[in-house]
Structures are given as C-alpha cells and as structure tokens.
Design a protein around this nucleic acid. Structure first.
Lengths: 202, 202, 202, 202
DNA sequence: GTGTAAGCGAGACGGTACGTCAAGTCTTTAG
DNA sequence: CTAAAGACTTGACGTACCGTCTCGCTTACAC
C-alpha cells in the first residue's frame, strides 16, 4: 500500500538536468567573455544548444538564470571561518569574498550585472536577497553574535549596523568604482575601524 | 577690430535651449512616472516633442541625459553645513541627501538607474563620478579635514575610509534593498559609530 | 499455416476508439468555433484531452485529421437522387451540398481550410481528392451517363466538362467570395445553362 | 500665399522605393523557388536585405506583400483583346492567363497561396478581390456586354453567370488539381459550351 | 493467471517564425 | 548648421506551434 504522503512521480518526462547545466554554464561564460550586457536569452540558448522556450519554461528572465548560476558556483571557501580570533575571521572571510570576485571575472561581472538588473525587476531583487544575500548575512551575524556573547563586542552592539559598516564600503567600491576593490591591507584597516567602533568600553 | 575673447556668433543657428530643457525635464519625469526602465530615447523624444536626432546630437546615451538632468536638479540644500558641531553637520548633510532622494522619487529612481547603467557604459561611469560624486565627496573630505585639524578626529585618520564608512551603508541600502533607506535615528547611530572609530585617543 | 490475408491480432493494446472520436470531434468543433486557422495539433490535443503523440501516431498532419472528420460527418443526404427528372436531380443534389455547407459552419470552414492546406501538402491533396471528391464525382458522372444514354444529353457530351461547369462556379464562390454561395434560384439558372449547352441537337 | 489645398510635402524622409522593389521581388522569387509556404516575413527580409520592421511598416501581412507583387507583375498581355470574333477573344484571353500562370511558376504558386491565405485573413480576401480580381472581371463583363449588344449573346444573358461558367472551371482545376490546367483545346471546348448555352435563340 | 508490448496522458525538448520594441543612423524639408 | 519628422538596419524580446522524445501507467492478448 503506497504511502499517500509521498506523492508518486508524475507520469511525464522529467526536467533535463543536462539542459539546466548547459544553460547555467553558458550564462556565466557569456558574463566572463563579453560582460553581463552580452547575456541575452538568445545568446544563452545558442551557446547552450537549447531552445529559448526551455529557458523561459524554467526561469522568468535572464537575471534569474544568472542568479541561479552564480548561487550554484558560489565559492564555499568564502564561508565564515570560526577561530578564536574575530578580526582574523572577518578579514579572512572578506578576503575570500574579494578573491572570488577577482579570480574569476565571470563572478564579478555577474554580480554587478544582477544588482543593476535588480533596479527594474523587483522579482529578481527578491531572489537576489533571498537566495544569495540572506544566507551569507545570517552567517556573518551568527559569527558576530558569538563574539558579542564572548565579550569581544559591546553587549548592546547593533550587529546589523556592523555588517553594513563592513560590507557597505565593499559594495560601494564594487558598484561605483568599477571593481577597484579593496586590497588586503585596506580590508584590515576597515575591519579595525569597525571593531574599534564596536569594542566594549575599556 | 573684434575682441577675440568674445567669439562672434557663428553664422548658423545656435543650439535650442528650449529643446534642451524639454529633453531634461522629460527624462526626469519619465523616471518618476514609470521608472528608469521606461526612459528610452524614443520616449524622451516623444514626450519632449523633439526628434531623436537632436538628442543624439548632444548626448551620447540616455544615461548622459539623465545624468545632466539630475545634476541640474541636484538639491543644493544637501550641501554641507559648517557649524562647530561635526556630528550635527554630518547627520544634517546625510539627512538632506536622503530627504532629497525620498521626497521626489524621480531622483532616487534616476540615481539607481544611472548606477545600474554604469555597469555596461564606462563613459557614463566616468561622467557619474566626475560630475556628480567627486564635487560632493570633495566637500565631505574638506569638512572632515577641518575637523581633523581641529582635533576632533585622530590626526592619522584615513578620511577616505571614513567617507566610505559613512556613505557605503547608504548606497548598500539604496541599491540592495530597493530604497529602504535609513531613518534619522539610524543615521545618528551610524555617524556615532564612525566618529567613535575615528576619535582621537583619550 | 495462418492466412496472411487475415493478420492475427497483434499481442498488444488496440487503438482507442474513444480517443479517435474525441480527436475528430475536437477538430471539427474548433473549425466551427474559431475557424480552420485555430485548428492546431496542440489545440486538438488539449480539447480532446489527448496527448499530441496520440494524434501524430495515427495522422500525418492536422489536415488529415480534419479530412477524416469531415468525411465521417459528410451528409449522406447530399447523395444523388435518381428520379426521371435530370434537372431536378442535379438541382437537388447541389442544393443538398450547399445546405450542408451552410447549415453547419464547421463543414464549410473545414472544407475551405483543407483546400487551402492542400496547396502546400501534396499528401493531403491526394487524400482530399481520393477520399472526399472522387466518390462523389463518380456518382455525378454515373448519373449523367444514365441521362446521356437516355438521350437527354448529346451523345458526344463531355461529362467531365459538364461536371466542371456545374461545380466550378460553386467552388469559385466558395473560395473567392468567402462562402457567399449560390441561392436555389441561381442553382436552377446554372443547371439550365449547363443542360442547354449539353442538350441534344433539336 | 500657399494654396492650402495642395499640401506641401511633409518634412521627412520619403519611403524608399528601392526597399519596396527588393521586397516585392524577393517575395515572388521565394514563391517560385520553394513555394508559397517558404514565403515568411523573415525570409523576405533576409533575401531583400531589409529589416522586418520595414515590411511590417507598409504591409499588414506577408499575403499583402505577395498580392502587391503579383499585381505589379500581372501580365498585361492577358488583357482582353477586342476583335469582332467573341470566341477568339475569350479563348485568347484565357489562354494568355493560363500561359502566364504556367510560364513563370512564381505566379501560379503565388496565386494559389494567396487564395489559401485568404481563408483565414478577411482583410487579404478583400484586397485580393478588390485589387486583383475586380478590375479584370470588369473587363470581361465589358467585352461580354459589347457582344450582347451586338446580338451575339441572348439579350437576357446573365453576364456574371457566364463569367463564372468560364472561369469557375479554371479555378476548380487550379485549386483542386494542383495546377493541371486546361489545354488550349479544352479551353476551346469550354468556351464553345458556354457560348452555346448563352447563344441567342435561332 | 500473468507477462509483456503497444497504447496512452502528460509534457519537456530543439526548432522556426511570429509580431513588437528600442537602439542608433540616415534623409528630407524648413528655418 | 539646427531642428522635426520619421524611414531605415539591427538585434533581442517573449510567444505560439511544430514534430520528436521520454516517462510511467494501463490494458488486452498470448502463453
């Protein structure tokens, strides 16, 4: 007797994983080669050897495709380290992030292109925040909460503000200065500043 | 003998100021009414009662039009106040900036749209930085330099970093959270944080 | 030894008569409701609650479906009457034909649509002639041959030409004047003309 | 003082005659080479070296393009001769028509394709009748009226019916038998039949 | 009775063409 | 030389059907 709570597979052809992969790869590659502006549904379809219909069947816009591709490819090495040294952890994570954006220009171009598209596509904006940002921001907040509980930050420190102070300048450069991102030294100075402003009273 | 410093009128029809104004107004109005995405050269031309050729004759792209329009309309009340109270001055200027962006949604939409376009138009990026940002950043740096010289900031404070700490979070919200900008309270907290991190050693 | 002329039933599920009927009905109904142009394999499948595959399994094109549907539905009352009065028989048959085409607009639309499709589908053209026309033309020729043998037409009358003279004008109107078909009076005049031209010399 | 009833030329770029010619030629050539089914707006545009927009600017559908092309190219030698011999004139004109359709297969294919399209495009149907048929039918009726007035046809002959008797069979063959048109001998027999049926009583 | 091969619904897939839109260039006439 | 009007090429958009294909279920015969 079948368990009704486990619905049997619908009796039709399942989605092609091969097409999905080809589409995501093609979209990121186009980003890297000719910039986000060259990413069009037609170009993705042509390069992936796929029909436009297949793209529109599964994604509402080219932005959604790039978003999924970027999320898939996101460098897990940029995840937060958890040592005893808060400053080192912060610098380490941010450095990993920047290195990811610089090492493979597909990623940097994809990210700023997505943010740009976001300005006239609310649905994409939601997706970007929900799928890409929120999980990573949560991680950061978690690490900072640990530090606060350990007395390394003031008990009343506003963790969200701290996060904005840390990442705000990074996005500021990324978007307004065409990817002239911070150096590691600058990152250290940035983290020092922010930690000093949130340090517990002596 | 003609005075060479007063160029004689060229023997041809001069640029029409009326058209220029109509074009700039139309571009901003379209921003406000249907968003930056609805700003197209065709739409501007139609609304301004002007031919597309005239637009292309004087501006290289629609972004350049919007940039000039925004620069023209920039709220001079957001200029930096110069009282003795650094904190009040900073909060005041930033509040003026945010109020300008919120009061007339044409401005907010125009700005984020421009930043978005910037990602695939280096010429526009240069224009945005040179015409819109730099003058205002200079002003901010000047005000901070005065404060530093007056001993209100550490002598070795990195003024550019301070600026990025102040404005980074603002742009972070503007671009990544669709204009859910800071409240005045949040601005105060932000300025306090940054000033604390740059305060002179006790 | 099995009789090869009576193929044994294949050891598998037989064709579904229910699907066949649903498909034919759906195709004619679509003709009637939105015109032949709205008859697409997808629409037939959707309306008949059938998969496209099932249609393509049994028919080579949508035209073939409509042809079979039309043939199935063909009004047998349009068959040739055989009284002594040739003129009355001809008028009667043609009137029955026209009435069929006018009474149910599914039929008229299906027929002209088929003829149209015929122009780029030779296989359908063959099917239309073989299945729909030829049997009816044979009947007409048979009736005329009887009349000729009875001395009601000239002995050397070209029966095929007579048929073309009778039905040519009908199709002419059907195709070139969007179904403004002849009235009964006009039919009578037409038949009179043709009979006069084929009458035996006095 | 300008005469307001003679509007001065509007101050804008006039329609390009070169594009128009290229489009019409391309559409007919495509008919001839791969059949009316291969005539698509995209194909016309590609072959004519013209953008789709230009086609859609001036014609509502591909059918309208082919119609205009066919009208432009219509063989004026198929115009009605006006000798004393009615039978010869009729045979001559119809022969010219058939020769035109057979000599250049672009024409035959274009015509049947148009008639087919007509079945789901009422606007095209109107155009076909108004632009292509009516002028030629009028000519035929005029010639027949002259004959009737000269006593060569019965005084009460229905000229429109005569025309349908003459041309109905031609279209019947053209559409239902894939262009197996009448031979000259058959044309003669056809004309004889029709004239006999309309001849004045002896 | 049961195994199995075809029928069947559903619908994903690679394509082609559709008709629309904006970009940016060019041509004409008027001032 | 400027400007309005708007025709032009280009190229992407998102949609509709085409005809083919895979999937998992069902069903009637053949053993």
């Amino acid at each position: 007797m079948p368990d009704p709570s486990v619905p049997v597979a619908a009796p039709h052809r399942p989605r092609s994983e091969a097409s999905r992969r080809a589409i995501l790869d093609a979209s990121l590659d186009l980003c890297g080669e000719h910039g986000y502006g060259a990413v069009t549904v037609e170009a993705i379809a042509a390069r992936a050897g796929v029909s436009k219909k297949t793209i529109y069947r599964w994604w509402p816009s080219k932005g959604a495709v790039v978003l999924e591709a970027l999320d898939d490819a996101a460098n897990p090495s940029a995840d937060f380290p958890h040592t005893d040294d808060l400053r080192a952890d912060l610098v380490g994570q941010m450095e990993g992030l920047l290195r990811g954006l610089l090492a493979d220009r597909r990623f940097g171009r994809a990210l700023v292109g997505l943010i740009a598209d976001t300005q006239h596509d609310p649905q994409l904006a939601r997706g970007l925040v929900d799928d890409l940002y929120r999980p990573r921001v949560e991680e950061a907040r978690h690490r900072l909460a640990l530090a606060r509980d350990a007395g390394q930050l003031r008990a009343d420190a506003d963790l969200d503000l701290v996060i904005e102070l840390l990442y705000g300048p990074v996005y500021y450069r990324l978007l307004l200065h065409q990817g002239e991102l911070q150096t590691v030294d600058e990152l250290r100075t940035l983290v020092d500043h922010v930690l000093r402003s949130a340090a517990p009273a002596p």
